[in-house]
C-alpha cells in the first residue's frame, strides 16, 4: 500500500454557503497504484471536479486523509503543496489554460521557471516536449494561432515537462470535436503505456472513459462504482453531460 501514488481515506468536503453547509464529498476512499489509468465519471454536482481539485492539491478537504506519493498532504504548507504541483503532478484543464501572451515554448517551459532552471535548459526541455506531442515546428507560435486540439497538446506538453508521476486531466476533451478527442486520448494512452505515467481523468463520455482501465463513478459525493471499465454496469457508463 505504501507505494501507491494516491491513497485517499474517509475524505469529506463541505462548502459553507449562505444557505448552510453543503456536503460535496462524503466518505470517499480511492487508492491509485503507479501506472494506472483511471476515468472518473459522474453527473454534474456529483463532486468529481472538487475531487479532482483536491487530488491536484489546488483545494483542501474538510477532513480525511490524502497521501500523495507517500506524503501526507494535510501536513504540508503552501510552499510544499506548490512544490508537489510542480514536480509530482501534471495538470491538464478543459479550457487548456495557456498564457495567451507567451509563445508555445515559453508556455511549456513555465513550470521549469519555478524549479529555478536556466533559460537555455528550459527551452531545450520545452522543445523536446513539444516535439513529443507533435508540435515541434510551432514552438514560436502563440496559443491563439493554433487549433483547440493543438492547444490541448501544448497543455499536455506543459504538464509533462517536469516528468510528473501523476497526470490529472479535468475533462481534457470537453472542448474538442470527436476526431481531435480521439487523438488526445491516443496520446494519453501512449503516455500511460509507454512512459508508465499514472493518469486520472474526468470525463462525461463513455467512449473517452473506454480508453482508461479503471472507472470510478461518483454520485452525490460518494463512490458508487470502482472497478475495471469493462466490468462496469451500463448505467455507470452513462453519458452525464
Amino acid at each position: 500500500m505504501s507505494d501507491s501514488v494516491i491513497r485517499i481515506e474517509r475524505l469529506y468536503k463541505e462548502y459553507v454557503t449562505d444557505a448552510g453547509t453543503v456536503p460535496v464529498l462524503r466518505d470517499v476512499a480511492v487508492t491509485v497504484m503507479p501506472g494506472e489509468f483511471v476515468a472518473i465519471m459522474g453527473p454534474s454536482g456529483s463532486g468529481k471536479s472538487t475531487f479532482m481539485n483536491i487530488l491536484g492539491c489546488l483545494d483542501v478537504a474538510t477532513s480525511g486523509n490524502y497521501f500523495l506519493n507517500g506524503r501526507d498532504v494535510n501536513r504540508l504548507d503552501r510552499d510544499e503543496l506548490a512544490l508537489l504541483r510542480n514536480q509530482v503532478i501534471g495538470f491538464v484543464f478543459q479550457g487548456f489554460n495557456l498564457l495567451p501572451r507567451a509563445n508555445l515554448e515559453d508556455n511549456v517551459a513555465l513550470p521549469l521557471i519555478y524549479r529555478g532552471i536556466g533559460r537555455t535548459e528550459r527551452l531545450a526541455h520545452a522543445n523536446a516536449m513539444l516535439e513529443k506531442v507533435g508540435l515541434g515546428k510551432y514552438s514560436r507560435s502563440r496559443p491563439n494561432q493554433i487549433s483547440g486540439g493543438q492547444q490541448q497538446r501544448v497543455a499536455i506538453a506543459r504538464a509533462l515537462v517536469n516528468q510528473p508521476k501523476l497526470l490529472l486531466a479535468d475533462e481534457p476533451t470537453g472542448n474538442l470535436d470527436t476526431r481531435t478527442s480521439k487523438e488526445i486520448m491516443t496520446l494519453f494512452s501512449e503516455l500511460n503505456q509507454r512512459d508508465g505515467i499514472t493518469i486520472v481523468l474526468i470525463t462525461h463520455e463513455p467512449d473517452i472513459a473506454a480508453y482508461a482501465h479503471r472507472l470510478v463513478r461518483l454520485a452525490d459525493g460518494q463512490v458508487i462504482y470502482d472497478g475495471p471499465v469493462e466490468h462496469a454496469a451500463p448505467e455507470h457508463l452513462e453519458p452525464t453531460a
Binding site: L58, A82, L99
Partner: peptide, 16 residues
C-alpha cells in the same frame, strides 16, 4: 487572477 491561478497550478509558490 486566472493567470495567477494557472501559474499556481503548475507550481508557482506564493513568493514567486
Amino acid at each position: 487572477t486566472r493567470e495567477i491561478g494557472i501559474r499556481m497550478a503548475i507550481g508557482a509558490r506564493g513568493k514567486d
